[in-house]
Amino acid sequence: MLRLFRYVALVEGITTLALFLVAMPLKYVFDNPVLIRPVGMIHGIAFLAYIAVMLFVLPGRGFGALGWIRTTLAAFFPFGTFLNDPYLRRREAALSALRRV
């Protein structure tokens, strides 16, 4: 399940980059806002999916208050989901090791 959350976080991060690095420069530098609406909508859906999957997956998997705060804040900052991924990968490995024992 944590792997699903990591995939959703990756999509959320990619849509953020698409919005900031493609759609917004196209609008503000080239005066062409054609991608703002579709990319913004996709990013909004990805953000909501991130929050929903986080609320579904994280409980009961050993995430303390700091882990919850870190993972929540990652969605609000550009590159945050990418910077948080090694933490999630370590948590996933730890949970996997516990299941094998």
Rank of each mutant, 00 (worst) to 15 (best):
residue 32 N to P: 05
residue 10 L to Y: 12
residue 50 Y to T: 06
residue 36 I to H: 10
residue 66 L to V: 08
residue 90 R to V: 06
residue 38 P to E: 07
residue 69 I to H: 10
residue 35 L to W: 00
residue 50 Y to L: 02
residue 57 V to N: 02
residue 39 V to A: 14
residue 80 G to I: 01
residue 26 L to N: 01
residue 46 A to F: 03
residue 10 L to H: 01
residue 69 I to Y: 12
residue 41 M to H: 14
residue 60 G to K: 09
residue 44 G to W: 01
residue 57 V to C: 07
residue 70 R to M: 12
residue 46 A to H: 03
residue 71 T to N: 06
residue 63 F to H: 06
residue 54 M to N: 01
residue 83 L to Q: 05
residue 80 G to Y: 09
residue 27 K to A: 10
residue 42 I to D: 10
residue 54 M to F: 13
residue 72 T to Y: 15
residue 90 R to Y: 05
residue 9 A to P: 04
residue 54 M to V: 05
residue 74 A to M: 04
residue 23 A to W: 12
residue 50 Y to I: 02
residue 37 R to A: 15
residue 14 I to L: 15
residue 54 M to P: 02
residue 39 V to L: 15
residue 64 G to Y: 08
residue 73 L to A: 04
residue 31 D to M: 11
residue 8 V to D: 03
residue 69 I to C: 12
residue 56 F to H: 13
residue 23 A to I: 01
residue 27 K to P: 01
residue 7 Y to L: 15
residue 8 V to Q: 03
residue 18 A to G: 11
residue 24 M to L: 14
residue 55 L to N: 12
residue 84 N to V: 08
residue 68 W to N: 05
residue 31 D to K: 10
residue 74 A to R: 01
residue 89 R to P: 06
residue 83 L to D: 06
residue 70 R to Y: 13
residue 79 F to Y: 09
residue 77 F to S: 01
residue 77 F to Q: 04
residue 18 A to Y: 07
residue 68 W to F: 06
residue 35 L to S: 00
residue 11 V to F: 15
residue 12 E to V: 04
residue 45 I to L: 13
residue 72 T to I: 15
residue 78 P to S: 07
residue 54 M to I: 06
residue 28 Y to W: 08
residue 79 F to D: 00
residue 13 G to K: 04
residue 81 T to H: 11
residue 34 V to N: 12
residue 92 E to S: 09
residue 51 I to N: 00
residue 68 W to A: 00
residue 16 T to F: 15
residue 25 P to G: 02
residue 13 G to I: 07
residue 7 Y to A: 15
residue 56 F to E: 12
residue 55 L to C: 11
residue 55 L to I: 11
residue 35 L to K: 02
residue 10 L to E: 02
residue 86 P to W: 11
residue 12 E to R: 04
residue 28 Y to S: 02
residue 48 L to Q: 04
residue 45 I to H: 04
residue 85 D to G: 01
residue 56 F to L: 14
residue 14 I to F: 15
residue 24 M to D: 10
residue 11 V to K: 07
residue 13 G to F: 12
residue 91 R to K: 15
residue 23 A to S: 07
residue 29 V to W: 15
residue 81 T to K: 07
residue 62 G to Y: 09
residue 27 K to C: 13
residue 8 V to N: 04
residue 38 P to R: 00
residue 86 P to A: 05
residue 49 A to G: 07
residue 78 P to D: 13
residue 75 A to W: 09
residue 91 R to L: 13
residue 73 L to N: 07
residue 64 G to C: 07
residue 89 R to S: 13
residue 24 M to A: 11
residue 68 W to R: 05
residue 72 T to M: 14
residue 19 L to V: 02
residue 58 L to Q: 02
residue 66 L to C: 09
residue 33 P to R: 00
